[in-house]
Design a protein around this nucleic acid. Structure first.
Lengths: 230, 230
DNA sequence: CCCAATCTTGATGATTTCTTGATACCTTCG
DNA sequence: CGAAGGTATCAAGAAATCATCAAGATTGGG
């Protein structure tokens, strides 16, 4: 049966918490999924397309904040952090990394449910696909895949990062400095050469005629722009 | 002038809290507004068009939850509740009424700021971009694009700068010296030639008949003026 | 440790943009 | 009419920016 209950992904490695959350939430209101560590969480965030993620920061294999950051590279899904850490610094880091809410254990089930409803309220009213389709190009942020006329194109990590940034801001001009800061860090602000090489490589991989780019157009003296239709 | 700091509306009747929040938030990051009771809050929510509302539930004239409900009838502006009430029931009611977050006093300033950033992140990412529309000309600052009768016009960096300056002051006359100083720096104050060349180029790109300019008109002996719908 | 993929840097030629000078224009006023 | 002051346009050299190839450096996996 195609049930369309809101999908919750619970990321926690402690069986006790898992049981607690399952008891609290498993009442035919939600469809529950779970992951026990960071890598499983990243996989599940793609595979089970949750509407909300409940994330414990204390994972065995990687930092919870890093999990948030990785998910935010391709998805806007609401993330509610559940943590025993009550230090303000932890909260600030998680929220700034992209979390939507932060609950300190122990918390009441009623409050948790209410905050999940808040998150759902928002995620349901704006459901953006993490796949950009522009003309014959398809960029699937969740799967890190790029298709051109149906053909998969293999990009190096840096090339992919540059393309992702450009595509996510399709239509806008991104200055050299913006791109350099985002991808190479502030140390490279004055070094546009390395960006040019990567753009050139990207063009050779995905433009029909690299000398007449249709997608990644250069704005001389300013930066680059991914040209959507229009 | 048009400052574009995020606008915060603080709704609280206790002078002590007001002072605390002003101290915490008034550091040129936000533009602060305030209301001392529920009715003033509803008025201010309309009048000052805040990007985020910080709302104390304990108001003298009406219930805070009711304030939330009324605002939600017409606005999606993020509302962060700040309250001394720590009962779960209060939190659930406020959140279900439409609040986005609920902080129990006392809270850390860092956490408050982080939660404000979360709210702003969301409201800004779905904000429309500033676009100047004057007759058939469209200047999109975010995309750095210029459309004339729907046609995209490609400008060099200097041409774009000149046009942006003129359009931002549409209707007003800008003297040669003002424009030169702004774009080429004080060293070029006595060299209007370079400005004329650029204006000429601009006209050829965006006027129907460059010799009969409709948009960039010459104020002989003074400077140039961008002409809105006459 | 080695290999292969990737990243970074250097060199070179192509392209775009900027600046300047020459020249023609237009309007006003004597 | 003709001169004067401010203005417009064209074109060419100078300067800045950009694209590309390819050679070293680095990295990560086996």
């Amino acid at each position: 049966m195609g049930n369309n209950l809101p999908r919750l992904l619970i990321v926690d490695d402690e069986p006790a918490i898992q049981r607690f959350l399952h008891t609290a939430l498993d009442n035919d209101e939600f469809s529950l999924h779970q992951a026990e560590n960071g890598h499983a969480a990243l996989t599940a965030a793609v595979a089970s397309k949750p509407d909300v993620i409940l994330l414990d920061l204390g994972l065995p294999d990687m930092d919870g904040v890093e999990v948030i950051r990785r998910i935010r590279q391709w998805s806007q899904v609401p993330i509610i952090v559940l943590s025993v850490r009550d230090r303000e610094d932890d909260k600030v880091k998680a929220l700034d990394a992209g979390a939507d809410d932060y609950l300190t254990k122990p918390f009441g089930v009623g409050e948790l449910l209410a905050r999940i409803r808040v998150a759902l309220r928002r995620s349901l009213q704006q459901a953006p696909e993490p796949v950009y389709r522009i003309d014959e190009l398809e960029v699937d942020l969740a799967r890190r895949r790029v298709l051109m006329r149906g053909e998969e194109i293999s990009l190096t990590p840096t090339e992919y990062d540059v393309l992702r940034l450009l595509v996510a801001n399709a239509g806008k001009v991104l200055t050299h400095r913006q791109i350099l800061k985002q991808i190479w860090g502030s140390a490279y602000l004055e070094q546009p050469h390395i960006l040019r090489v990567n753009v050139s490589n990207l063009r050779h991989k995905l433009e029909k005629d690299a000398s007449r780019p249709c997608y990644i157009v250069t704005e001389s003296g300013v930066g680059y722009r991914f040209k959507g239709q229009s």
